[in-house]
Design a protein around this nucleic acid. Structure first.
Lengths: 188, 188
DNA sequence: GCTATTGTTGGACGCGATCCAAAAAAGATC
DNA sequence: GATCTTTTTTGGATCGCGTCCAACAATAGC
């Protein structure tokens, strides 16, 4: 066992409490103190589990994004097939339950504006990650940027469709695979 | 002449003052009060010219984005050629002087993180705008999202390259035209 | 028990952003 | 030129986010 005081809660508990409150009062009207109180921890402790109110639901996504970056940082020339498999691996370990709930109930939660901001940041981050990978694969800067953006668009589109259809319906990986299949020919 | 008290400043003046301070002290260390003071207006008045500290430099870009949305909202089926010309029109009226300065001096200004966030939001917004246009042009949702993201990636990549090369070097429109030429074949 | 380690807690702080009522500066009307 | 209307400015108040820190609590290993 690891030494030290055990954690009093978990990020999932925090995220669940947050979703409840977002549904009851809306995103804006819910303060960090509210979330912490419902989860049974102090406001200070909230920041041991998440860096911000908006980032709380995106934590699983961000962790997988770091994995994606590592995959594309490995030696070897990332061809299109490598990019595709890396993105699929990224999606396989991804289980963004609370985030899916938020996407599906964005209007009821008053989260449309926040989701736009936060998903935009993630999309750009993935685009940049893939672009640097594509550059290492020999592409010039411009088409690498475009390819990265296209891949990132496919990822976010798949995430949204998967969440709207209900996470139980299909595996996120499969939805994303379909999206990646649509990549060639999307810009003709 | 229009009735009422005349404006005491302008957004450009505010943006210029902001850039100076960002270079001197860094973005984080510069408060809105600082910017307003240097521009000779009160802190309250700052919000008559910009909605936020981060948005100040992006105001010209946002105005042209609204124009782009209007162009793609016009009747008629937006084919690829229409998308392309709309995006070029968007860029022609765009004169983001302060923004270009910030992009070129992002490190010296300590604006890397902020630029990532703000440009991500703009990129996603353009992607969404173009995606809805592409949908109206007959594409299915998925490839419309991908095409929108690819176009948006080209726009932001062109903006960055144009700013880094120095705004006097080439017209933004021409840089963007090259980027749009790279669209087909970027995802092969 | 003692110590090292890890987490929790409350409080204080600065800043971004919103809101509002009061005041100031212009044109319009007579 | 006095008054009215319109537009903008201004200061102050308020709220919440996010950071920082010192004190305290709980666990493992010795």
């Amino acid at each position: 066992m690891r030494a030290g005081r055990p954690r009093a809660s978990s990020r999932d508990v925090l995220a669940e409490a947050a979703c409840e409150l977002f549904l009851e009062q809306g995103f804006e009207a819910t303060s960090i103190a509210d979330i912490a109180r419902r989860a049974g921890v102090s406001r200070s402790s909230f920041f041991n589990y998440a860096t911000s109110k908006a980032g709380l639901l995106w934590a699983p996504f961000d962790e997988r994004s770091a994995v994606l970056a590592d995959l594309l940082d490995a030696p070897g020339h990332p061809l299109d097939a490598v990019l595709r498999s890396a993105v699929l691996t990224f999606a396989e370990g991804l289980r963004p339950d609370a985030l899916a709930l938020a996407i599906a109930n964005a209007d009821a939660m008053g989260m449309a504006a926040d989701l736009e901001r936060e998903s935009a940041v993630r999309m750009a981050r993935i685009a940049s990650t893939i672009a640097t990978g594509a550059r290492r694969g020999g592409r010039d800067g411009l088409s690498a940027d475009i390819a990265g953006a296209a891949y990132a668009g496919a990822v976010m589109s798949a995430l949204r469709h998967w969440a709207l259809a209900g996470p139980g319906t299909r595996a996120l990986r499969d939805v994303l695979a379909d999206a990646l299949d649509a990549l060639p020919g999307a810009v003709s």
